[in-house]
Nucleic acid binder design. Sequence first.
DNA 1: AACAATTACGGAATCCGTAAAAATT
DNA 2: AATTTTTACGGATTCCGTAATTGTT
Lengths: 292, 292
Amino acid sequence: MLDNYLLEELTTFARTGTLAKTAAQLNVTQPTVTRGMQKLEADWGVRLFDRQPNRITLTPTGKLAAQEAAALLQAQHQAIKKVQNFERSQHHLTIGSTLPGPLMLLQHLRPQLPVQTTITADLLTDQDLTQKLQDRDYTLILTSQAPTAPDITTQFLGTENLAVNLNQFMYQANQADIRFAELKDLSFLVIADIGPWRDIIQRAIPGAKFLYQDQREAFREISAYTDFPYFNSNFSFLDPLLTTNTSKTNTVRLPIRDQSAHMPVYAAYLPTNQTVVAPMIRLLRENWPATA
Amino acid sequence: MLDNYLLEELTTFARTGTLAKTAAQLNVTQPTVTRGMQKLEADWGVRLFDRQPNRITLTPTGKLAAQEAAALLQAQHQAIKKVQNFERSQHHLTIGSTLPGPLMLLQHLRPQLPVQTTITADLLTDQDLTQKLQDRDYTLILTSQAPTAPDITTQFLGTENLAVNLNQFMYQANQADIRFAELKDLSFLVIADIGPWRDIIQRAIPGAKFLYQDQREAFREISAYTDFPYFNSNFSFLDPLLTTNTSKTNTVRLPIRDQSAHMPVYAAYLPTNQTVVAPMIRLLRENWPATA
DNA sequence: AACAATTACGGAATCCGTAAAAATT
DNA sequence: AATTTTTACGGATTCCGTAATTGTT
């Protein structure tokens, strides 16, 4: 025997401390709450309250019950949301990415994806990806950190490979490729939201300064009129803001040789969604840019 | 909006496959179930069923919903049980042990424990101890495998140390103590339920045979009239069935030197129960038998 | 013909709000 | 005097069972 509205009353009482405030917050009258808590005690066969004529407080058992009630309510909301998201995912897909390159590729392939597809505009963080899939918040996530949960399928798609653009007259520019160590103590122009790349370049390049730009236009303007080195990847040709810069003849693009500059990209999804996701993975693979 | 009886109906429908059987199993009429499932779909705003005039089946969404509903119901039952157990633990304690020695000590100290205390007669297994404490099935557990969960307090109590009883004329008997390796290829009389000791002796003594006795009386009789070696610990003097054997002058008791023959014993409990448990721990420590 | 699901209608249980009472600060 | 909890009573919602309908196997 377990009635939902009683759990609501119990948890809000645990917050407010009086039945009156509880009633006010739930838009019911005091007698309702009084009866409710009496019924809860009767249903569970447990004393939840210490009662004095004018004051009512939770017993230790009552405090535990309030915790449990809150957990149950949250679990219920989550379950409903999961089911609703699943229903939605039957005719509407949501895709996310933790990496900037694959995100650009997704947006580039947007016309070839099913009509009812949403691509989350911002990068996801690598935390709680499993949860986001299991909650059906996302049908497909592209990430370099393949979740290890047993009920999640992961598939390797390809790599995103970092390159740096240098002024052609810098002494480091006179070679086919480059290592992070050769870039030390330089100042770089960097677009702010580049996911895990941010950590990687900050750790790999000693003494470097990074001028993070929140706005892509600001990045384009500054890079057009200055000679700050800036980063690229094999996906950058997809971005119109970045490709305009390649027309600048005085910069040289050098792929970075270090292992950490080659980021694997995995597709993560629930086995349930295998059939809907499969054609998308094929599409991504077919349009994956060259590694250089 | 989430009604409990609708979850029950959904989960039983997932098992039975027809509304009629569902109704029969829940002791209600078909119309009740029909309306219930319609209401569930309306409440959640989701299509759960494919309906044909004569047959109704779960959609993929419906199957997921049924799973979630079953999980929610179980979580609810567990929560209620936990609260009820906690209430009970306010005036009634349940203690368990995974080790035979500490269990005997508990039973020996029974008269000095609070009146409303239950000591589980059988040994617990080392799995799910954390769960048993958190579910309030047990207030205190004595174990050699201290649970690592963050919300569980563990305290070292002492050790249980294995010894072996040999016929005095066996060549190994002529020493103060012994090692497992010296017992190889012998046949031992062993009481069946000795918890983790069973694994330890089976691994440590190569080529040994173990004659497990389910009944303690059988063990006593056979050991009295034969010369099979048998095991003991520093707790065994507490057991009347075992102490009678020490009167046999023709057996020698040898402590075992190996590290694995010295089992640490921890008290595990929830911080909530600190105050009730503390005097018991003191009592156990004061009556802990000598290590030999 | 038998079975399964649904709809319509009336009764029963439950839950809520208003009003009033009791007791404390 | 103002708050807080509790009890009593009447109304309203909701939930269920019986009976009847539709459509399939």
